[in-house]
């Protein structure tokens, strides 16, 4: 035999590598390798910067050893607020789910109203433009006063944070429905309900979903801050509690979880949006 070429050594190991496996390897190299390398570099940098005994913040190795109990045991329950990270996050997610779903229903309805009626647009738009600039936490005292209870107050803060981008995007989407689609509906003589479900919602769906995506991100931003103030079980209060107990490693771990959950929330809405609006954006 001649000297083996490079491709021989790569593609002819003990067994026959199928083309799909090769493609998998290419994908791993192209898509997975870069973030892994960057992550390793960042962690390395962090480790070096925080390795001195006088450092104010814990290094990654320190975080992992401090929080190992929390990492391996996310669903313990010792009563009161002393629950695993899994429960804390689920409690926060539950509040977000209520507040966000209310915002979706109310936001899409108001958005359709404002998109359809010029009168409603003129009347409501100034109100929306002012209210949407109010920071989420500024709503908390007044909702505590109104609801006299922390849980509905937190839900209200999520609701009021998430609703603005949903309203605004929905109304833009409804206003941008091409005249042709309206004409088609008129020739076929669709009634109001049929027009709403068969034409308006699908035509505005790409806009609605971009509002929903912004809304879910804002909800998750607001819940952590709101929970810090209202207490109880939840990732926000967990962070505040850890700060009061000077457990910086717990805070770091919580931040990692908050980031990952926020990422998945965003991806989830984006995924649903892609499925629902498939075909709608091109014509």
């Amino acid at each position: 035999m001649n000297t083996p070429t490079r491709s021989d050594t790569l593609t002819k190991p003990m067994f026959n590598v199928g083309p799909s496996l090769l493609r998998l390897r290419d994908m791993l190299v192209q898509k997975v390798l870069p973030p892994v390398v960057i992550l390793a570099l960042l962690l390395g940098l962090w480790e070096i910067l925080c390795s001195s005994p006088t450092a104010a913040l814990p290094a990654p190795s320190q975080v992992i050893s401090d929080t190992w109990e929390l990492i391996v045991n996310p669903f313990y329950d010792y009563g009161g607020n002393d629950k695993g990270m899994g429960w804390q996050i689920l409690a926060s997610l539950e509040r977000v789910a209520y507040g966000y779903l209310l915002a979706v229903v109310a936001g899409i309805s108001l958005g359709v109203l404002v998109g359809q009626s010029t009168w409603a647009l003129r009347g409501l738009d100034p109100v929306f433009q002012v209210l949407r600039t109010v920071p989420p936490l500024a709503w908390l005292p007044i909702s505590l006063a109104g609801f006299q209870d922390s849980t509905p107050s937190a839900i209200f803060v999520i609701f009021i944070t998430a609703i603005w981008p949903i309203i605004i995007n929905t109304s833009v989407g409804v206003r941008n429905i091409p005249e042709d689609y309206r004409n088609v509906a008129r020739v076929i003589r669709l009634n109001g309900y049929e027009y709403f479900t068969r034409i308006m919602l699908p035509a505005a769906a790409p806009y609605i979903f971009s509002g929903l995506r912004i809304g879910v991100g804002l909800s998750w931003l607001a819940i952590v801050a709101a929970e810090m103030l209202i207490g109880g079980v939840g990732i926000g209060f967990f962070i505040w509690d850890a700060w009061n107990a000077s457990m910086l490693s717990d805070i770091v771990l919580a931040l990692v979880y908050v980031g990952i959950v926020g990422f998945f929330l965003d991806r989830m809405v984006a995924f649903v949006g892609n499925r629902v609006t498939r075909g709608t954006t091109q014509s």
Binding site: D180, I199, P202, A203
Partner: peptide
């Protein structure tokens, strides 16, 4: 005095609903 299926229109840009 109103549009209706007895006078159906073929629009210039087809106007099919893309979804």
């Amino acid at each position: 005095n109103a549009p209706g299926p007895d006078r159906s229109v073929v629009f210039q840009n087809h106007s099919l609903l893309p979804w």
